[in-house]
Amino acid sequence: MSIDLVDTDASSAEAARQGSGYEAWVPELSVTETWQESSSSGALLRRQVVFVPSLDPWESVDSARAAVRAGAPGVLRLNLRSTKGALPLTEWALDPLPAVCEREGYALALDYGPTGTVPLTELAAFACSAPEVALLVLGDRVCEQPAVWRLLDCCPNVLLQVTDQTAPASLAAGVGTFGAHRFVFGSRGSATGADAVLLAALEADDQVALTSGNARALDTLEWRQRWL
């Protein structure tokens, strides 16, 4: 099946009703043996590992590895929201995950929630400590933080999620400065797909990169090989 749109941040399985040519990544908090399936509409639903450290640090890593082998995206998700269950973005809390991701090529999706402000200093420190790990920052209004552009400048392993709430002018400026490979589409739960107005300011190749190409490259480990 040809995939035209990869939604890297769907909130539920309902997002997979978009139809053929659509792939949705849905966070999966429970253990499952079915990491990917086709919906009745022909869309591909892939359950994304939400990494939760356990008493045995290798137990969670081994579970994530098994999930990826079974069809989960090669982009593991971390809950960094300001809620119960959120993780600190530090090596001691996530060890040995950063080293495993660096060795095996997995990317990390950093979920700061729908309204949370991204702590750029903490994120930059972590990005610099794991320079070979691609980090996809998830959040509704990530591009609205002025200093986020300096983050992209100093940390080449950081990508930003683009949602329908992103200002088209900001996206066009970001793509023009840092390249389309630094941006990935995520719906944050919307069922409408990528906004045509948002994409209209981009060249055709950049639109493809943002809506499917970069997500596919992260999933298959090609993004790191090309850009880091």
Rank of each mutant, 00 (worst) to 15 (best):
N214H: 01
T34A: 00
E14H: 10
A64S: 14
A204F: 03
L44Y: 01
F185A: 09
P96W: 08
L44S: 04
A70Y: 12
A16C: 14
T220M: 04
D140M: 13
S60P: 04
L45C: 01
R182V: 03
E144C: 06
H181G: 00
S170P: 01
C155G: 07
R188Y: 07
V26K: 01
R65T: 04
D4A: 14
G21E: 09
L55R: 07
A13F: 05
V197L: 09
Q165S: 15
Q18R: 10
A167D: 14
L202A: 03
C101R: 13
T192A: 11
T34Q: 06
V49D: 00
R46M: 09
R216V: 01
Y112D: 13
L76G: 12
A124K: 14
V49K: 01
P53W: 08
A72L: 06
S63Y: 08
T117M: 14
A169Q: 11
A72Y: 09
V148Y: 08
F185P: 07
L78Q: 12
S60T: 06
V61M: 07
P88K: 13
A93M: 12
R81Q: 12
F178E: 02
N157C: 10
G174T: 00
P57H: 05
S63W: 11
T83S: 15
V6G: 04
D56L: 04
V184P: 01
D9E: 09
E59D: 08
G105W: 09
P146E: 13
T121C: 11
R46D: 06
L108Y: 13
A130M: 09
T163W: 04
L110M: 12
G19R: 05
A169G: 03
F51K: 03
P57R: 12
W227I: 03
E144T: 10
G139D: 11
F185R: 06
W58E: 01
E222C: 08
T211A: 05
D219Y: 03
D219R: 03
L151F: 13
D164E: 13
L123T: 15
S129A: 14
A172D: 12
A200C: 05
L210M: 02
T8P: 04
D9R: 10
S40R: 00
V6D: 00
A15D: 13
A67K: 08
T8H: 00
D7A: 05
T90F: 07
A180T: 01
T117S: 14
L135Y: 06
L198W: 01
Q207H: 06
G21T: 05
D4S: 08
R103M: 13
R216W: 07
R150Y: 08
T220F: 02
Q225K: 10
R150Q: 11
C101N: 15
D95I: 00
H181Q: 11
S40E: 08
A180H: 02
P53N: 06
